Amino acid sequence: QTVHVKGVQYHFPNPEEAVKFALKVAKDLGGRVEFHGDEIHVE
């Protein structure tokens, strides 16, 4: 599972961890989380 944050990719073997990370980052940055297939983008 890959999380993209402002052009940087973070790889997580566990999808659940990836989602938790993405939600935390989005909250910290005041952004939103978008799901694109296997990828999660924080915009």
Rank of each mutant, 00 (worst) to 15 (best):
P15R: 15
L29E: 05
H11F: 13
E43F: 14
T2L: 07
G31P: 00
D28G: 07
Q9M: 13
H36P: 02
F21P: 04
Q1F: 15
V33T: 02
V19E: 08
G31Q: 04
A22Y: 02
L23H: 13
H41E: 03
F12D: 01
D28L: 14
L23N: 14
V5I: 12
H11R: 09
V19F: 14
H4P: 00
K6P: 02
P13W: 11
V3A: 01
E34M: 13
F21E: 04
G31I: 06
P13S: 13
Q1C: 15
V42K: 01
K24Y: 05
H4Y: 14
V19R: 11
H11C: 13
A26N: 01
L29K: 04
V42F: 03
R32V: 11
G31V: 08
G7D: 06
V25A: 09
H11S: 08
G7K: 04
Q9S: 11
Q1T: 15
L29N: 06
A18F: 02
H41S: 06
E43P: 04
K20C: 14
V33A: 04
A18V: 00
A18Q: 01
E39Y: 07
F21M: 03
L23E: 15
H11W: 15
G30Y: 05
K20I: 09
A18I: 01
P13T: 13
F35R: 06
V19T: 07
T2E: 03
K27S: 10
D38W: 09
G37W: 06
E16N: 07
A26F: 02
G30R: 07
G7Y: 03
R32H: 11
P15I: 15
D28P: 02
K24A: 13
V8H: 09
L23A: 10
H11K: 08
G31T: 05
H36E: 06
H4N: 10
G7T: 04
N14R: 05
E39P: 02
H41P: 00
E39R: 07
N14H: 05
L29C: 14
E34H: 14
K6R: 12
Q9G: 05
H41D: 02
K27A: 12
V33H: 02
H4M: 12
K20G: 04
A26V: 05
H36G: 04
G37L: 07
L29P: 00
V5G: 00
V25M: 14
K24Q: 14
D38L: 11
V19H: 10
V19Y: 15
E39F: 07
H41M: 08
F12L: 03
G37F: 07
E43H: 14
G30L: 06
L29T: 13
E16R: 08
A26W: 03
L23I: 13
K6Y: 13
F21W: 12
G30W: 06
E16D: 10
E17L: 10
K27C: 14
L23S: 09
H41R: 10
Y10D: 01
E39Q: 12
D28Q: 14
R32I: 11
R32K: 10
D28E: 14
F21V: 03
H11L: 08
K20S: 08
A18E: 02
E17M: 10
V3F: 00
F35G: 02
L29I: 13
D38T: 12
V19C: 15
P13L: 12
G37P: 05
D38C: 15
E34C: 15
A18K: 01
I40W: 06
I40N: 00
P15F: 15
F35P: 02
V5P: 01
E34Q: 10
K27D: 08
Y10L: 05
A18S: 02
K6N: 15
E39H: 15
G30V: 04
V8I: 12
F12C: 09
K6T: 06
L23G: 06
R32L: 08
F21C: 09
H41T: 07
N14G: 06
K24L: 10
V3I: 03
K20N: 08
T2D: 03
G31Y: 13
A22E: 02
T2A: 05
Q9F: 10
P15W: 15
G30T: 04
H36C: 14
Q1N: 13
E17Q: 09
A22R: 00
Q1L: 14
I40D: 00
E34F: 15
A26M: 04
G31F: 11
F12V: 01
V33Y: 03
L29A: 05
K20T: 07
A26D: 00
E17K: 05
K6W: 12
V3P: 00
Q1V: 15
V3N: 00
E34P: 00
H36V: 12
A22G: 02
V19D: 03
G31S: 05
E43Y: 15
V19K: 10
V42E: 01
N14A: 05
Y10W: 06
F35N: 04
V3S: 00
V33D: 00
V42L: 03
Q1D: 04
V33G: 01
L29R: 04
A22S: 02
V42A: 02
H4I: 14
P13D: 14
H36R: 13
V25C: 13
N14T: 14
H11V: 09
A22I: 03
G37I: 06
V19M: 15
A22F: 02
G31E: 03
V3Y: 00
A26I: 05
D38P: 08
G30Q: 08
T2C: 09
F35V: 09
K24N: 09
H41L: 08
E39T: 10
V5C: 07
E17I: 06
V5F: 09
E39K: 06
V25T: 09
P15M: 15
V3K: 00
E43G: 09
F21N: 03
G30S: 06
K27P: 01
F35S: 03
R32Q: 08
V42M: 02
V8P: 01
G37A: 07
Q9E: 10
E43M: 15
K20Y: 07
K20L: 10
E17V: 06
F21H: 05
Q9I: 15
N14D: 10
F35E: 03
V25S: 05
K6V: 06
L23F: 13
V25Y: 06
G30D: 07
R32E: 05
D38E: 10
G31A: 11
P13G: 10
E16A: 11
F21T: 03
V25L: 12
H41C: 08
V5S: 03
A26C: 09
K27V: 08
D38I: 09
E39M: 08
E43D: 08
H4E: 05
K6L: 14
Y10Q: 02
E39C: 13
R32S: 10
Q9H: 12
E34K: 11
D38M: 11
Q9A: 13
V5E: 00
V5D: 01
A18N: 00
Q1E: 04
V42D: 01
V42G: 01
V42Y: 02
G37D: 09
Y10P: 01
R32M: 08
V19G: 03
E34T: 13
K6Q: 12
V19A: 07
V25W: 10
E34V: 15
K6D: 14
E43L: 15
I40T: 02
H11Y: 14
E16M: 09
V33S: 01
A26T: 02
Y10R: 03
L29F: 09
Q9P: 09
T2P: 02
K20P: 01
V25F: 05
V5A: 04
E43Q: 11
H41K: 07
E39S: 10
K24V: 07
K20H: 07
F12Q: 00
E16S: 09
G7C: 10
H36Y: 13
H41V: 10
H4T: 12
V8G: 04
A26H: 02
K20M: 09
V33C: 09
E16Y: 10
F21G: 04
G7V: 02
E43S: 11
L23W: 11
H36F: 11
A18T: 01
V8W: 07
Q9C: 15
G7M: 04
V25P: 00
E17S: 08
T2N: 06
K27H: 12
K24H: 09
D38G: 13
H41Q: 04
V42Q: 00
V33L: 11
R32F: 12
N14V: 05
F35Q: 05
V8N: 08
K27M: 12
R32Y: 13
K27Y: 10
Q9D: 09
H4S: 08
G31N: 03
K6C: 15
G31K: 03
V25Q: 08
V33K: 00
H41A: 04
V8D: 05
D28S: 12
N14F: 05
P13I: 12
H36L: 10
G30H: 09
T2H: 06
G37E: 07
V33Q: 01
E43N: 11
P15N: 12
D38F: 10
H11N: 09
A26Y: 02
E16G: 08
P15Y: 15
K24G: 08
V33M: 07
E16V: 09
Y10M: 04
E34I: 15
I40S: 01
V5M: 05
Q9K: 14
F35D: 03
E43A: 11
G30E: 06
A18P: 00
K24E: 12
E16F: 09
A18H: 00
E43R: 13
H11D: 06
K6S: 12
H36K: 11
E16P: 04
K6G: 14
